Structure formats: structure tokens, C-alpha cells
Simulated assay, not measured.
Amino acid sequence: MNKTSNAIILLGGGGHAKVLIDLITESGDFKIVGILDPELECGTQLKGIEVLGTDEVLPELRDQGVQNVAVAVGSIKCNLLRKTLFNRSRELNFQMPALIHPNSICSADISLSDGVQVMAGAIIQTDSILGEGTVVNTGAQVDHDCQIGSHVFLGPGVVLSGGVTIGNNTFVGAGAVLIQGVRVGDNAVIAAGAVVIQDVEDGALVKGVPAR
């Protein structure tokens, strides 16, 4: 495999990987050269992309000249696997570029860290900051001045009003709404459809309308 600066490997071969394949194909910034997933048989394909093995072949791919990795596993409440794969890739000196769907809307005045993924239809407004490895899923809305930590997963259709703060490793389920200025701690879980009108402590699980 020849060294190319835009070659990228996907870690994971499930539904989230399918969405990333579409994103990367639409953007044209990177060329996907393979998928690594311990649950899939080597040599099979996902949307035309070959499964090359498990994460154990990462050093070999690096030595062959692949420079970029995308964490392509999704999240259901716990983001530990995404964080683990991100950190392992960094230890192996891979780059983890931010991936932004061309049909998203992103202000010019936002900060996106390594490994951020912004899916189709998402909106991120001015002066928002997103930490490394964070996912803004399909149709999610992040309004002005939000501060989102590392390895946060915003499900489809999430709405963050202005000035929301979210800590590291937190999961926000599909369709949840957080009103302006609320603060959510690290490792919290916001259930799908919840309406958050007050601060959420570290490690808390809240659900309902209003969320408790």
C-alpha cells in the first residue's frame, strides 16, 4: 500500500460506519482503504469497503503508509469503546481528522478538535467548542456558545440551546432537548426525548419531561 496523505481506516463496521462511509464519500477529502472490526470476517465488504481484519493490524497499516483513522463505532449510553479506540490510534501516531458532512451547517467561528464527526443535517452555531472524538449526529443542533467535552455522543435530532455545557464522555439520546445555559457533567446519560431544564451531575442518568 503506497503512502497517501488522504488514506483513512475505519475502526468499526456497523451502522455508524455506514454513515461515515457516506460522509467521507460525499466530502471527497479522504479515501477509505479498509475497515477493521473483530466481529466481521476478513475479506468481506461493507458498502464496497473491504474488511482487513481486527485492530491488531493497525501497526502494519501504519507501516504501509496509512496515516488517518476514524472511530466508526456508534454509542448506546457508554462511550468507553470509542474513547479506547481513539486513544489507541493516537498512541500509534495516527491522525484522527475531524469529519464534516458537506450537507451540515457549521459556523466559521467554531472549534472542532481531532476526531470530531459532524453528520448530515447537523447545525453548529458560532463560538461553540467541541472536544476530541465527539459526534454530532444526523440533524442535531448545537446553538451558539456551547462547550462540549471530549468523546461526547449527541444522538440524531438532539437540540442544544445557546450556552449549554456538556462534560466528557456524556451520551445524549435521540431527540433530547437541553435549554439554554444548562450544564451537564462528565459520564452522564440523557435519555432519548428528555427535556433538560436544570443542571445534570457527573454520572447521572436523567429522562422524561422535564428530565429527572
Rank of each mutant, 00 (worst) to 15 (best):
L23H: 07
T84P: 04
T54W: 06
D63C: 14
V19M: 14
V57E: 00
H101P: 08
A211S: 10
G181M: 07
A174Q: 13
N168D: 15
F153S: 10
S150V: 10
R88C: 10
I105V: 14
S104L: 06
I49D: 01
N6D: 13
I166Q: 00
V195I: 12
K207W: 10
K31Q: 10
Q45L: 08
V195P: 00
Q141I: 15
T126M: 12
A176T: 02
R212T: 13
V51D: 04
S113F: 10
R62P: 03
M1N: 10
N2W: 09
S128T: 11
L85N: 01
S89H: 05
N137C: 13
A211P: 04
V51F: 05
V184C: 05
D37L: 08
E132A: 13
L20K: 05
G34C: 04
D22N: 14
C78P: 02
V164D: 01
A192S: 13
A192M: 13
G181P: 04
N87D: 15
L99Y: 06
L46E: 05
S113Y: 08
V206L: 03
L61W: 00
F94T: 01
F30D: 01
G157F: 03
G13D: 06
P102H: 04
V152E: 04
V118N: 05
D114L: 04
L130S: 01
I123N: 02
C78L: 10
Q180Y: 09
H101E: 09
V196T: 07
D22I: 12
L92D: 05
C42F: 09
N87V: 15
